[in-house]
């Protein structure tokens, strides 16, 4: 199963709408980095509105993807993390400190633009 990655001007938009298993998550990591390389995108929004479980593995993959994209010159914003997911992440002791977050896709794009302009 592959997660579709959409391109919009300089941005890449991803909406994850399935229950992520490990393989899909790793595949996604690879796909996204390739896509950044191909398109030269400067900003990425990953929308997690439909994700209802993030365990420590998926959290690590997401955190890694943010750091990796950063290395390749693309800023990542995670959007739409559900309250229940946020609470479990905190309980797990995962804070994703380096990651920028936003309430929804729209806010995410605004934040990206602000950060890239600075």
């Amino acid at each position: 199963m592959r997660i579709p990655i959409l391109k919009l001007h300089n941005y890449l938009l991803i909406s994850i709408q399935i229950d992520l298993d490990d393989q899909t998550a790793i595949q996604f990591q690879e796909d996204l980095l390739n896509k950044i390389h191909q398109s030269g995108a400067t900003g990425v929004v990953i929308d997690l509105t439909s994700v209802d479980i993030i365990d420590s593995f998926i959290a690590k993959v997401l955190g890694d993807v943010v750091t990796m994209s950063d290395l390749m010159g693309a800023k990542v914003v995670l959007t739409g993390i559900q309250p229940a997911v946020a609470v479990t992440l905190i309980d797990l002791g995962i804070h994703l400190n380096e990651v920028t977050t936003a309430l929804d896709l729209e806010q995410g794009l605004i934040k990206l633009r602000q950060e890239l302009e600075e």
Binding site: L78, I81, A86, L89, I90, H95, T101, A102, L103, D104
Partner: peptide, 9 residues
């Protein structure tokens, strides 16, 4: 506060 940050606020 950390959880609030995670959900993007």
């Amino acid at each position: 506060a950390e959880a609030v940050r995670l959900i993007g606020s």
